[in-house]
Nucleic acid binder design. Structure first.
Length: 285
DNA sequence: AATACGCACAACCGCCGGGAA
DNA sequence: GTTCCCGGCGGTTGTGCGTAT
């Protein structure tokens, strides 16, 4: 007996979430907390499957998320952790509070992989890319003489090698040692993440609430008066926009139009909820 | 100005493991 | 021990946006 799908997909919406859907989901979780995800869409009035709701929440709506590019320190940490853990993104993410596995995975695939290759490091093994273009050329020439009955297999091999060669030659073409120093993952310095001075805030319009360096939330949260929250031991060396949710800007959490107090209450509650959640994994540090 | 292309990121898919019945 | 459900994970795809032509 095959496993049943997580939900009846008929009539369910897919694709990007709208501000209205986000609003509904947040509102529901504020009110009810994170419970059975399967029931969430129904109860929240969403035409989404529970899984989709969970992903949307964990990857995007969770208030403790950091937005924006990974800092250099975070990047180094990811590389270091990846060298030890491999593609176990959730494990890696657990060492970087405010970052999701999805975010790290994306960043790895789009930025770090290329960066490492440019540096002459194999992103899979974290070893130097050993075979030079010449080596691969010789190897290929050697293979030309191979018997035809192995052709199919060889095709695959040379395809792979070709890919590798492309990478290597690309490195040869583009890589300049003057430009990027060779560095091994173990040589990278991973900063201590326990500076107590760091602050975390779910922004406010008061300019002084969060010092210029930390988590000031651009213009997007200006309508919400929120208290500053300072969880322990977080160091984020670069300014971080906690809320990249520009769409939320228009909400003002004014539920039922005009009930500003309710909106504020909910927002405050949301902040508390967020801080109470187990997602804070500071103990890992 | 219009179109093509590439990149970055959000979202989906399918599988797996843990736990409850 | 078996079955089923749920949440989590990692890989892949889709979408939107910026840039180049």
């Amino acid at each position: 007996m095959g496993r049943q799908p997580c939900c009846d997909k008929v009539g369910l919406k897919k694709g990007p979430w709208t501000a209205e859907e986000d609003k509904r989901l947040i509102n529901f979780i504020l009110t009810n907390g994170q419970c059975c995800w399967r029931a969430v869409p129904k109860l929240a009035g969403l035409l989404r499957c529970g899984k989709s709701c969970r992903l949307r929440w964990t990857n995007y709506l969770r208030p403790d998320l950091k937005r924006g590019l990974l800092s250099e320190a975070e990047e180094k940490m990811v590389i270091e952790l990846h060298s030890k853990l491999g593609n176990r993104w959730s494990k890696i993410a657990s060492h970087l509070p405010g970052r999701t596995d999805n975010e790290i995975k994306n960043h790895w695939n789009t930025h770090i992989k290329k960066k490492l290759r440019r540096m002459g490091i194999d992103p899979l093994t974290h070893e130097p890319l050993i075979p030079s273009a010449n080596d691969l050329l010789h190897q290929e020439q050697h293979q030309v003489g191979a018997s035809a009955d192995r052709r199919e297999g060889n095709d695959k091999v040379s395809e792979e090698q070709g890919e590798e060669e492309n990478i290597t030659s690309a490195v040869d073409d583009a890589f300049c040692t003057d430009e990027v120093p060779m560095i091994q993952p173990h040589e990278m310095i991973v900063p201590c993440a326990s500076t107590p001075s760091a602050s975390f805030s779910i922004s406010s319009s008061s300019s002084s609430s969060s010092s210029s360096s930390s988590s000031s939330c651009s213009s997007s949260c200006s309508s919400v008066k929120a208290q500053e929250i300072q969880p322990p031991c977080m160091e984020w060396p670069e300014s971080v926009c906690l809320w990249g949710l520009d769409e939320l800007n228009g909400w003002d959490f004014n539920y039922a139009q005009g009930d500003e107090q309710l909106g504020l209450d909910l927002f405050t509650q949301w902040q508390r909820t967020a801080l109470d959640q187990e997602t804070w994994k500071f103990e890992l540090f």
